[in-house]
Design a protein around this nucleic acid. Sequence first.
DNA 1: TTTACTGATTTGTGATCACAAATGGGGTAT
DNA 2: ATACCCCATTTGTGATCACAAATCAGTAAA
Lengths: 190, 190
Amino acid sequence: MHGELGPGQTLTLRGVAAEFDVSMTPAREAIRRLSAEGALSVSSSGRVSAPELTADRIEELAALRSLIEVELSSRALPRAHMALIERLYTINNRISEQIAKHDAVGYIRANLEFHRTLYLRAQAPAMLAMAETVWLQLGPTMRARYGKLQSKEAPRYHRLIMSALKAGDEPGLRLAVRSDVTQGLKVLLA
Amino acid sequence: MHGELGPGQTLTLRGVAAEFDVSMTPAREAIRRLSAEGALSVSSSGRVSAPELTADRIEELAALRSLIEVELSSRALPRAHMALIERLYTINNRISEQIAKHDAVGYIRANLEFHRTLYLRAQAPAMLAMAETVWLQLGPTMRARYGKLQSKEAPRYHRLIMSALKAGDEPGLRLAVRSDVTQGLKVLLA
DNA sequence: TTTACTGATTTGTGATCACAAATGGGGTAT
DNA sequence: ATACCCCATTTGTGATCACAAATCAGTAAA
């Protein structure tokens, strides 16, 4: 999810088992679970690797993000009080720090935390799980793109999201979230 | 997905292994994979069962169905030619037959085939997989409800879906699909 | 009748192993 | 230089096992 694996990077059962100092059995379960969510792809011979997404699939996943996350933000809006918005500001500053450090994994992690913090307020665990499944699938690709990008500014639409939250402006919030996702898509397809 | 398991019904590794005449290992992988998708829930002690959904969660899953399936139908519309629509008619008749036979599992299966046939045309595998994950989670609950319902008529909105397809009417199609899902939700919460 | 306890049984977990298939590299022939 | 082939090694799969925890039934006490 955080882009610790690049697209196409392969994993072996014994490798993962050794890395976490367990036997093959738990490693196998973890890998199979991630494959079931589409986070890892298995070749016909059973070998597992981080997925290399086609442009079509990236577009699909971005469309899913948009559908689900707009709904999540909309459901979070009535429950969003000031403490939450301040927390979002803090996280947003952390995002800028990670960008300054050129830390791709840190950037992705902080960016997702921004979104998750907002969506947790929606009290919609099934939807949040769906959104996270999508993030999981996009992780390796995001890392590959953001790793190459130098000196990107902090996500422009995050400020719009926060001010729409503060104003209780639902249409504005929906638009801001959709724009943020779309902007992310543009980066991935650039 | 088809409601062969009722809500709360428990599964054991050794039970599934014996049922399919394999060892515990493949049974475990299958069960863990289904748990990862939310199709089975695991208790804190690791025991697995078909999920018993709360009303809140059912509403969430129905909202997800609506979001994703409306989008899928919309993407399928430009590619839907006459042969597809005729196929939908055939499946819809099969649905009526299953209702007449009071076969809950057969009804669910045919109903999902109707939707899947349409959505396959969208050429959006990631979205379809998401929709199927939702169906998977709703399976046991649907069976429990439809099993009790006697003499239900065939889904009213399927005809609307087909005529909107024939007319190339996108807003009408979106509305018809949303109505069909909403109608299904009403049955589940009744 | 209900509650509490206890021992037999069931059950998930992690580990290990044998085996077949796939992979990858080095050498040979064209 | 390229394509092909062959063999050592890696890798996933399914099976089995030991063990601890949880579950369940049956009994006894209140």
